[in-house]
Structure formats: C-alpha cells, structure tokens
Simulated scan of single mutants.
Amino acid sequence: MAAHPGCVSVDAGQVVLRSRRGTELGRAFQEVVADAAQLPDATALDGELVVWEEGRLAFERLQDRLARRGARAARAATEWPVHCVAFDPLRLSGADTTLLP
C-alpha cells in the first residue's frame, strides 16, 4: 500500500482531515488542511494521502509524517509534503453527491 485513505471536510470554515478509521490527522498534515481551506463550505472529499519521492509513492515517508506534530510536522512538510488525491466527492457545497453516477 502506497497511500493513506482518508476524508477531508470543510464545514462552517473548519477543515477536518480524518483517516478511514476516524482518527483526526490535521495536526500531522497541516499543509493538506491549508489547501483544503480553499474548498467551498459544506464539502467533503474521500481520497488518499500520498508523499512523492523521486517519482514514486513513498509510504514510509507518509508513516514518518504521521508521527510528527507541531514544529517537527512543519519541518517535515517542507521535506516530504503530503498531497491529498481526492477521488470521490461525498458532498459539494452541501449537496450530497454519493448517489450521482
């Protein structure tokens, strides 16, 4: 496995990044939270968190990033930035999109 599944949501201006099991991940991946803040309010996306290194997915870097918080997370974000690859919109601007083809 080369990525970490999760969901990012924006509600009332608050961004929440969660793992598939519901663990809050925003403190470890502040760059993803900052990018998601640009999404419309009342939006939720399902996707994968990935780290690219030398043209390949680097799961070990993602695992390392999970363990970091605060200043350590910020430093790691410059070295191994995490990207959210969204593949399924669950809600867009408040509209449930789960039943759309």
Rank of each mutant, 00 (worst) to 15 (best):
P5G: 09
A37D: 06
M1G: 12
R21V: 12
G6Q: 08
A37V: 06
L99S: 15
G55P: 03
P40A: 09
A86Y: 00
A67F: 10
A36H: 01
E54C: 03
E54A: 05
R65H: 00
G22K: 04
E53A: 15
G94M: 12
F59K: 09
V15S: 07
D11H: 11
A44W: 06
H4G: 09
V8S: 02
T43Y: 08
L57R: 07
D11M: 10
G55I: 03
E60R: 13
F87T: 06
H83E: 08
A42C: 02
Q30V: 11
C84M: 14
F29S: 00
Q38F: 04
A67T: 05
L25R: 00
V51R: 02
D41F: 15
R72M: 12
A42Y: 08
A73V: 06
C84R: 09
A77C: 02
R18Y: 01
G70T: 06
A77G: 07
A76P: 08
L17Q: 01
D35Q: 14
G94I: 11
E60H: 07
R68P: 01
R65P: 00
A76I: 14
A34Q: 11
R69L: 12
T97V: 09
Q14K: 14
D96M: 11
D88G: 00
P89T: 14
T97K: 05
A37P: 09
R61G: 13
R18T: 05
Q38G: 04
V85E: 10
A2R: 05
A37F: 13
A34Y: 13
D88E: 08
R65A: 05
E53V: 14
R69C: 11
G70A: 13
T78I: 02
D46G: 02
G70K: 07
D96R: 09
A36G: 08
L57K: 01
L66Q: 03
A76C: 10
L66R: 11
A34C: 03
H4M: 15
A37W: 12
Q63T: 04
D88H: 13
V85W: 03
R27K: 09
P40R: 13
P40Y: 10
L39W: 10
T43H: 03
L100P: 00
E31L: 05
R68E: 08
